[in-house]
Every structure is written in structure tokens, then in C-alpha cells.
């Protein structure tokens, strides 16, 4: 089916679905949550999983779907939202309702500390099985899946010259030309560094440091660096790259032969959240089919099998994926931050 038609159908379906949903199709649980959430009126979302504009759009989508419940989006990099939450907790301040970072280690820790509210969303059952039951106890659930791939600026690099695998980035010809995210800020960048260490040992970062990479804070920063031609190749987020390409920027993606780094990011409701019902409703929404359609439009990996991927997005089954285990992440990310600061600097 041609893309235009798919889109039209999707829209029709959405429009129809919305009015229909408002009229009748709230599940009993959903309806109850909505009623309670309306009394709370708002939900505060600490989020590191999506770019700012995307996260805010999601918040607005939610309010459209459930009028009377506003989403306060606090977007920062994964490590910074965690830093913010831990500062809140240390100070005994409750502000955050739903917490969505990009480092699953945060959730493992917070759950162990008893800082999470156990909530199993109804919609979690509709996720792709691989993304279900990340936490066997059901405190946190997958809300975003992303891959890190090799990106390059097509004005400056010919396709045949582009790196094919991660180790190609160590080639001196990329000296002063690589852009990265900072594991001290970005959880996804941390996962990528962790994976590189797992695949190629600590020496990989030392060698990469010799190529004098530029490091922004957010992994999304690599996209702006490439678009501005400040740097020409990057280890960057696939979804943001696809969105940038769709806008007409001169960028291409290489799915590395040694594997795109997959990261599963989870969310959870904070214990003693000031708006627990709104948080539950929003959690449900993030796992809903409707939201997955919005995810597809913003090129994030699909969470549910019942939604079509965006055009140009390569389905995950078509390229090689590598992924660290949760245990490796919990143990590894703090080490990685130190490794980075000792090798790459700051």
C-alpha cells in the first residue's frame, strides 16, 4: 500500500477511534482512573527517553485524549532526570509522578530502595513479548526502545567511505570528525559505551579517545552536530536521526555489521507520587496502541506488534542487534562513567 494511503487510513482510524473512545470505550479501570485523575488535574513526568519536542507532544496527546489532566514535562538527559529525582528524595520533596530514564539501573536501584509504587498497567500485556516483564515484580515497564547506530553527514561523507562497523570509528581518518553523547548525562550513550566495552574491551574507548571525539551531553546532540557539519560521523540515536532525515537533512544511517546497540528504557510510578491516579492513567496511555501509533510517527521502535512502522524505518528484525543484560547495565554504567572521564575526559 502506498504510504499516503496508509497515513490517511491511520488518521481516519485515529479520529474515529478517539471520538469513539470518548463516547464509550473506556475500560472500567481506565474510566475509574480517569475520574480520579481529573480530580488530581495533572501529572508530572520526569523524562529522559524522548527529545524535548517529542515528549511535550506526547504530553499534549494525552491531554487531548483525557481532557482535564495536564502533563508537566520535565525533560533532561537520563542521568540528569535521575539526579533531579534523587535530589528531590534526599530533600524529602515529592514532585515527580512518573519517572522515565534511559538507564535501567536507576529503576533497579529505586525499586530496591522501595521508592517505586508497584503498578502493572493493563496495556502492558499488549507489548511485544520481548519487551514484557522486564521487571518480574511488575514495578517498572518498557516505555521506550531505541537503537544506537552509526550516522553520517551525506554532504561530507560518501556512502562507500562511511564506517560499516563500530571498530571502523577507530580509523585515524575520523580524527576530529566523530560526535558522541556523554554517558555522564545520557543513559543511552552509557549503554552504547558499555556495549563497546563488552565487545572490544576497555581499550576501545582509549583508542577512540585518540580520534578526539566531540561529546555533547544528550545523544540527540550528535544529530545537530552532524546537521551543522561540525562533525561528520556519530554514534547516535536512530529514531532522532530518522526524524531528521525525514525533514530533509543530509544524513544517513549505517546499521553496523557488529550490531546496533539496543536499549530498553523503562518507566515507573514513584512512591508517594503527588498524583498517583493521573500517573497510572498516563502509564496506561504510554503503553496503549494509540500512543504506539504516535511513537511510530516519531520513528521510535514500536512497542506493540499491532502497529505499522514508519516508512524508512528498518524493522528491527532486519538488522543485527546487540544488547547488554540488565545486570551488566546495573553494574557497568557507574564504571563506564568513570572509564569515560578517565579516558575521554571530564
Amino acid at each position: 500500500m502506498p504510504w499516503g494511503l496508509v497515513r490517511v487510513c491511520q488518521c481516519l482510524w485515529l479520529v474515529a477511534g478517539l471520538s469513539w473512545a470518548e463516547a464509550a470505550t473506556l475500560t472500567p479501570n481506565e474510566a475509574a482512573l480517569y475520574e480520579a485523575a481529573k480530580k488530581e488535574g495533572e501529572v508530572t513526568w520526569y523524562v529522559g527517553q524522548f527529545a524535548t519536542d517529542v515528549a511535550q507532544q506526547f504530553g499534549k496527546n494525552f491531554t487531548e485524549r483525557y481532557p482535564g489532566v495536564k502533563v508537566n514535562v520535565y525533560r533532561a538527559t537520563g542521568q540528569v532526570v535521575f539526579q533531579r529525582l534523587s535530589q528531590d528524595m534526599k530533600a524529602g520533596v515529592r514532585q515527580c509522578d512518573l519517572f522515565s530514564s534511559t538507564d535501567i539501573g536507576h529503576s533497579v536501584y529505586l525499586k530496591a530502595q522501595g521508592q517505586y509504587l508497584r503498578y502493572k498497567p493493563e496495556n502492558a500485556a499488549g507489548l511485544i513479548p520481548a519487551f514484557q516483564n522486564i521487571d518480574p515484580d511488575g514495578y517498572y515497564h518498557t516505555t521506550q526502545v531505541n537503537t544506537v547506530t552509526i550516522l553520517y553527514n551525506t554532504d561530507k561523507v560518501k556512502p562507500e567511505e562511511a564506517p560499516r562497523k563500530w571498530t571502523d570509528l577507530l580509523d585515524p581518518k575520523w580524527k576530529n570528525k566523530i560526535s558522541l553523547g556523554h554517558p555522564g548525562f545520557s543513559g543511552t550513550a552509557g549503554t552504547w559505551v558499555l556495549m563497546m566495552r563488552e565487545l572490544y574491551g576497555a581499550g576501545y574507548m582509549e583508542k577512540l579517545a585518540k580520534n578526539n571525539p566531540q561529546a555533547g551531553r544528550s545523544l540527540n546532540d550528535t544529530i545537530t552536530m552532524l546537521n551543522a557539519a561540525e562533525r561528520v560521523v556519530a554514534a547516535g540515536p536512530t529514531a532522532t536521526a530518522l526524524r531528521s532525515i525525514a525533514k530533509g537533512n543530509p544524513m544517513a544511517i549505517v546499521y553496523p555489521e557488529d550490531g546496533a546497540v539496543l536499549q530498553i528504557s523503562v518507566s515507573a510510578i514513584v512512591k508517594d507520587a503527588p498524583h498517583p491516579n493521573a500517573a497510572k492513567l498516563f502509564f496506561e496511555y504510554l503503553l496503549s496502541r494509540e500512543h504506539s501509533v504516535a511513537l511510530a510517527e516519531t520513528y521510535y521502535e514500536l512497542l506493540r506488534p499491532d502497529v505499522d512502522p514508519a516508512p524508512g524505518a528498518k524493522p528491527m528484525r532486519e538488522f543485527k542487534i546487540v544488547q547488554p543484560t540488565i545486570e551488566a547495565i546495573v553494574k557497568g554504567i557507574p564504571e563506564i562513567k568513570e572509564l569515560w572521564r578517565d579516558t575521554i575526559g571530564n
Partner: peptide, 21 residues
């Protein structure tokens, strides 16, 4: 600053994270 009472300078710094010049 907290998430709800960010001032312009703090928001500007937060915006700079993603490098959207």
C-alpha cells in the same frame, strides 16, 4: 531550581543539552 520553577537561564541551559541551536 526545580522542574516546576525553572527560570529562563536554567531552561536555556537545559535546552542546550540537545544542541538545538
Amino acid at each position: 531550581a526545580g522542574p516546576h520553577n525553572r527560570v529562563m537561564s536554567v531552561l536555556l541551559y537545559d535546552l542546550s543539552e540537545e544542541g538545538n541551536f
